[in-house]
Computed example of a mutant assay.
Amino acid sequence: MTGVGRLLIAVYGVLALAATGRSFVQIVGKYEQAPLAYSLSALAAVVYIVATVALVNRGRGWYRTAWITITFELLGVLVIGTLSLVDPALFPHDTVWSVFGRGYLFIPLALPVLGMWWLARHPVTGVEPVTSDA
């Protein structure tokens, strides 16, 4: 893997570490203040970890896992980002995905788009991208 793929994996890895650290500190230190927000930060951390592992490992199962986690990530950042603007009381403290990842320089908003683009450009032979055409 070269170029954009390596950069993509590196950014996912850094975001996985950052989200994991942030959620750990939030949950251990002040969970009762914003349990929903802190639980969502932990969920985001798990998604970033699984996406990172799936992008590093090639194969049909990992390719599908990458599509699923990155799609979930995009939906999460869009839904939580929108809800955090429409009803800020739902999230009295920020999550990784609040305001579309503002606390992380909007990388959580851009990253899944780049990830989906990269996956579409580098399919595993014999595996079609996961689509919502049902």
Rank of each mutant, 00 (worst) to 15 (best):
T125I: 02
H93S: 11
H122E: 10
G61L: 09
P108W: 12
F91Y: 13
I49P: 02
E128S: 13
L40C: 07
A19E: 14
A110P: 00
L40S: 09
P123I: 03
W62Q: 01
L75Q: 12
D94L: 08
V130C: 03
V96E: 15
T69V: 00
W97V: 02
R58S: 08
S41M: 00
R102K: 10
A45M: 00
V86P: 11
H122R: 09
L114E: 09
T2A: 10
A44H: 06
T65C: 08
V47I: 06
V46E: 08
D94T: 10
V99K: 15
A45T: 01
F72Q: 13
Y48T: 01
L111G: 03
F100L: 12
T125M: 09
R64K: 13
P123N: 10
T71I: 13
V11R: 03
A89Q: 12
S84T: 12
P112I: 01
T71M: 14
K30C: 02
V4P: 13
P108I: 06
Y104G: 04
I27H: 08
L7V: 12
K30P: 00
A42F: 06
P35S: 07
Y38D: 08
F72G: 08
I70S: 03
N57F: 04
L40H: 13
E32D: 14
W97A: 14
I70K: 00
G101H: 07
W118S: 05
Q26V: 00
G59K: 02
L8K: 04
I49S: 04
A45W: 01
R58Q: 11
A66W: 05
L55C: 08
Y38M: 04
L78Y: 05
W67Y: 11
L78S: 10
A10Q: 10
P112N: 10
G61Y: 05
W62A: 02
V50R: 11
D133H: 13
R58K: 11
R102N: 10
L17G: 01
V124L: 02
K30A: 11
F24D: 11
I107H: 07
A54R: 04
E73N: 14
V127C: 11
Y104H: 13
F100T: 08
A10L: 15
L74T: 04
A37P: 06
W118C: 04
V25R: 07
R60N: 07
V99W: 15
I107D: 08
S23E: 08
R121N: 07
L105T: 02
P108S: 12
V86W: 15
V79N: 14
L114D: 05
V28G: 02
E128L: 07
W117E: 14
L83I: 10
G61W: 03
G29K: 08
E73K: 00
I107S: 03
R102E: 15
L119P: 09
L111C: 04
I9W: 12
V127K: 12
L40N: 14
D133I: 00
Y104T: 02
A10R: 10
L111P: 01
F106V: 01
T65K: 05
W97G: 01
I68C: 06
T71P: 03
G126N: 06
G81D: 15
V14E: 15
V127F: 10
L83S: 12
A45P: 03
P88C: 07
V28A: 15
G76V: 01
F106R: 07
